[in-house]
């Protein structure tokens, strides 16, 4: 870790302009990813701008959904009655993530920005296009069991590691962003993360100095009837090998609307319009779910060690849908 200065911002403007004006600066909220990566020298910032004093708080109903301040902690959001009741997939995704200690620290804005656990990214002795653009991607022919099969490129197959953003992607969440000029814009979560392509170092649409202010999730039947299923190598405190956030509105055995996103298999939270298209209007049966799952991984490009994820992602999705349909 290098030496850095610390600024505690009390106004959004103070924070955003500090980070915009200094390429070496970074925001810090819970710090659960940032400090980890700084200790590994994967990120090297000369200034940390503490945003915990900012007013990006609150979990409150809006006219058509729920608004969550970006600085709310994972544990508070995951256990909030409105989230538990109206967005079970969101609650479950949070409570199945990390450990209680980490959830008590980590902000949900930071959680959306969590960086990959790819072992090549996290060790500066390896080449890594995400960390050092143009240096190469040894993961392609290396230890890639945990890495992505969807949205990959020749430059990068790093998995997006988070859980919450997968649920948010499924349930049409929209992020409110604010830049250093005080200008705000709304970006759907599905458009917030970028595919690696040839520029895996660029992970989101955030401009320098831009902050996540809040997240809104629209109310919907498929949000109230949603679930998050996470498959991992141990029962707690592990990243997903595959996960599925699904929402279903079923009436008289027919699916009126469906929401599907996959985690642990994509380079970003992986919303699947292909699966949703098959589900919508179809009978809520295992055959339908199987067809939807096949569509969701149609474009998968597995490597040697992560081939099993093609099957696992489908089974995870089918299981999640079956459980929802039964409930």
């Amino acid at each position: 870790m290098n030496d850095f200065t610390y600024l505690q911002a009390t106004q959004a403007k103070e924070a955003t302009s500090a980070v915009r004006d200094n390429k070496g600066a970074a925001f810090i909220a819970g710090g659960t990813t940032l400090l980890d990566l700084m200790k590994l020298n994967v990120e090297n910032h000369d200034q940390l701008v503490d945003i915990n004093m900012l007013a990006f708080k609150g979990i409150e109903p809006t006219a058509d959904g729920l608004r969550i301040g970006a600085l709310e902690r994972m544990s508070d959001v995951g256990e909030h009655p409105l989230v538990v009741q109206n967005y079970p997939a969101v609650s479950q995704s949070l409570l199945l993530a990390a450990s209680p200690q980490l959830r008590n620290m980590a902000s949900i804005g930071g959680n959306i920005l969590q960086r990959t656990r790819c072992g090549y990214f996290r060790d500066t002795a390896f080449p890594c296009n995400k960390r050092v653009p143009g240096s190469g991607c040894p993961a392609q022919d290396g230890e890639n069991k945990g890495l992505a099969i969807l949205g990959t490129s020749k430059a990068c197959i790093a998995t997006f590691p988070g859980d919450l953003p997968v649920a948010l992607a499924a349930l049409d969440a929209v992020l409110l962003l604010e830049n250093a000029k005080g200008k705000q814009r709304r970006v759907p979560l599905v458009d917030f993360h970028l595919l690696p392509g040839n520029t895996p170092e660029k992970e989101t649409v955030l401009e320098p100095g831009e902050l996540i202010v809040s997240i809104t999730i629209p109310a919907a039947t498929h949000a109230r009837k949603s679930t998050y299923l996470k498959v991992r190598e141990r029962t707690s405190y592990a990243y997903a090998l595959a996960s599925a956030a699904v929402g279903l509105d079923v009436q008289g055995g027919q699916i009126r609307s469906a929401r599907v996103a996959l985690g642990g298999v994509g380079t970003k939270p992986w919303r699947s319009p292909e699966a949703e298209k098959i589900l919508t209007g179809a009978p809520a049966t295992e055959a339908t779910f199987r067809a939807a799952a096949a569509a969701a991984v149609h474009d998968a490009q597995p490597r040697e060690q992560n081939r099993f994820k093609v099957e696992l992602a489908q089974n995870t999705l089918v299981r999640a849908l079956m459980e929802l349909a039964k409930a």
């Binding site: 060790d123 002795a125 390896f126 230890e143």
Partner: peptide
Amino acid sequence: RDPNYARYTNADLAD
């Protein structure tokens, strides 16, 4: 252990 670099890729207690 990466087969080309002979270096561990999950040397922490999270991975």
